[in-house]
Structure formats: structure tokens, C-alpha cells
Lab assay of single mutants.
Amino acid sequence: TEYKLVVVGAGGVGKSALTIQLIQNHFVDEYDPTIEDSYRKQVVIDGETCLLDILDTAGQEEYSAMRDQYMRTGEGFLCVFAINNTKSFEDIHQYREQIKRVKDSDDVPMVLVGNKCDLAARTVESRQAQDLARSYGIPYIETSAKTRQGVEDAFYTLVREIRQH
């Protein structure tokens, strides 16, 4: 089974770092803004072998026109913010609204991801993020692309959301 996953969120929150940590098991430290990259990885989730087709997208506003296209083809979405960047957390709402509009559905598989949880300088409390996820009816997972904490959990949870859909 193949799953088309799309990673969305503001610029600099760590979308590529999360994806590369999942696929290649290493942490990319330097920031190089993405336009669009796709990665494929075969994994076993709950005993089922599946192929993850992951689209890593641009957070930069100037590429926002490309969003409709990949939102149409994606089956599930990782909505990523950084726990030390309140603005990126506030941006999640717009991504969710755009996904709902493009998919013409209120019920699209999504996982809210709070990345950079290895950093002490948190400005978005776990509780705020949990409340937001609960209001959307989606899971919330904290990750660190640096330490790998929660990385597999985030992507695998999204696959489970798609399966249950």
C-alpha cells in the first residue's frame, strides 16, 4: 500500500529536517529553504509493509500558489509548527483551512506536530497545542528532528489516521 503524505507549515519550522531524519536517519543542521522535494521510503507499520511517498513543501509565502496542487494529491498532512515560534503555531489554522477548502472536506487525515521540542526556549505550551488538536479532532505529537524523538511516531500516526479514514 502506498501513502501520499504531505508536510506543511511555516518556513523554518523543520519540515525538511523531520523528513530527512525519518528517511535518512540524520539531522540536517543548516537551513536551506525548500521549494519542493519528495522522498520515498518502505516501512512496516503495524505489520503492514507500506511505501511512504512524502512531499516536503515550501513554507515560504512566495510558493503558496503551489499549495493547491499538492493538497489535492496528498492523502494525509503533517501540519508542523516549531514550539519556539508562536507565529508558526498561529499559521497552522490557515494551512488547515486551505487543506479543507482544496479537499472540499472537513475530515482530512492530519496530525499536528510541534517540532524542536529539544529546545528550552518554548513559547507554545503543550497544552495550547493539545487544545488546538482536540478542537480539530486530530492527534498532537511533539518531535525533535535533532534527537529523533517522536519522528517515526508522527509519520506513522498519520498513516494510521489515513487507514482509519
Rank of each mutant, 00 (worst) to 15 (best):
V159L: 14
R163P: 11
E75Y: 05
D29K: 02
A82H: 13
D107A: 04
D68C: 10
Y136I: 12
S135V: 11
S38D: 01
C117W: 09
T19I: 08
F27R: 01
K103C: 10
F77N: 01
A121F: 09
D29F: 02
G137P: 07
A58N: 14
D46N: 06
F89K: 01
R96V: 10
A17N: 00
Y156V: 13
K146G: 15
C79F: 12
E97K: 11
A154G: 11
Q149K: 13
N25H: 01
F89A: 07
E142S: 10
R96H: 03
D32Y: 04
D68M: 01
D104M: 13
V151T: 14
D131G: 13
D68H: 03
Y39P: 00
R127V: 07
E2T: 03
P33Y: 07
Y31M: 13
V28P: 06
S64R: 07
R122M: 13
V151W: 15
Y3G: 04
Y136P: 09
G9E: 13
L132H: 09
C79M: 07
Y39M: 08
T19Y: 03
M110E: 05
I162Y: 12
I20C: 07
R101P: 03
L119G: 15
Y63N: 15
V44I: 01
G9R: 01
I138W: 10
K87V: 00
N115F: 01
S135T: 11
V151L: 15
V124C: 11
R101G: 06
G11E: 15
D118Y: 02
S105W: 08
V28L: 04
A133K: 03
T19D: 03
T34N: 03
E161G: 12
Q21Y: 13
A121E: 14
R148M: 14
I45S: 11
R163T: 12
E125T: 11
A133L: 09
L158A: 06
E161Q: 12
Y31S: 07
L52G: 03
N25G: 03
P139Y: 09
S38M: 00
R160A: 12
A121I: 12
N115L: 15
N85Y: 07
V124T: 10
T19W: 01
V124D: 12
S16A: 00
Y63S: 15
I141T: 10
E62P: 04
F27M: 13
D29R: 09
C117S: 06
T73S: 08
R72F: 08
D91P: 01
V108G: 04
C50K: 04
G114R: 09
T86F: 07
D131L: 11
A129T: 11
G12V: 15
D53C: 02
S135M: 00
S126I: 08
D56M: 06
G137K: 07
Y136T: 09
I138C: 04
T49N: 08
R134I: 04
Q164H: 07
A17H: 00
C50N: 02
Y95T: 09
Q98W: 09
I162L: 12
E90Y: 04
S38V: 11
Y95E: 07
G11C: 15
A120N: 09
C50E: 06
R163C: 13
D37M: 00
Q94R: 13
V6R: 04
L52I: 11
S105K: 00
E97I: 03
L112R: 02
V108S: 03
S105R: 04
E48T: 06
N25Y: 06
R122G: 12
R148V: 14
T1D: 04
M110W: 03
K100M: 09
G11L: 15
L55A: 10
Q164C: 11
D131S: 09
E161S: 11
D37A: 02
K100P: 01
T157D: 09
T57R: 09
R101S: 06
T19S: 08
R67M: 14
T73C: 10
S16C: 00
N84G: 12
T19K: 03
L119N: 15
G137L: 11
T123I: 10
Q164A: 12
V44T: 07
D106F: 06
V102A: 07
H26S: 03
T157V: 13
D106K: 12
F89S: 05
G74D: 02
R67Y: 14
V113E: 10
I83F: 07
A145Y: 11
T143K: 09
R72A: 11
Y3N: 09
K41S: 07
G137H: 03
M110D: 02
T19C: 02
D104G: 07
D106C: 09
G150T: 14
Y63Q: 15
E62L: 08
G114K: 01
L78F: 03
L5S: 01
S135W: 12
N115P: 13
E152F: 13
E62R: 15
A17R: 04
I138V: 12
V44N: 04
E75A: 05
E62W: 15
P33G: 06
N84R: 03
Q69R: 06
L55T: 01
G14Q: 00
I92E: 06
D29W: 03
C117Q: 11
G150D: 12
D46S: 05
D153C: 00
Y63L: 08
G137C: 00
N85H: 01
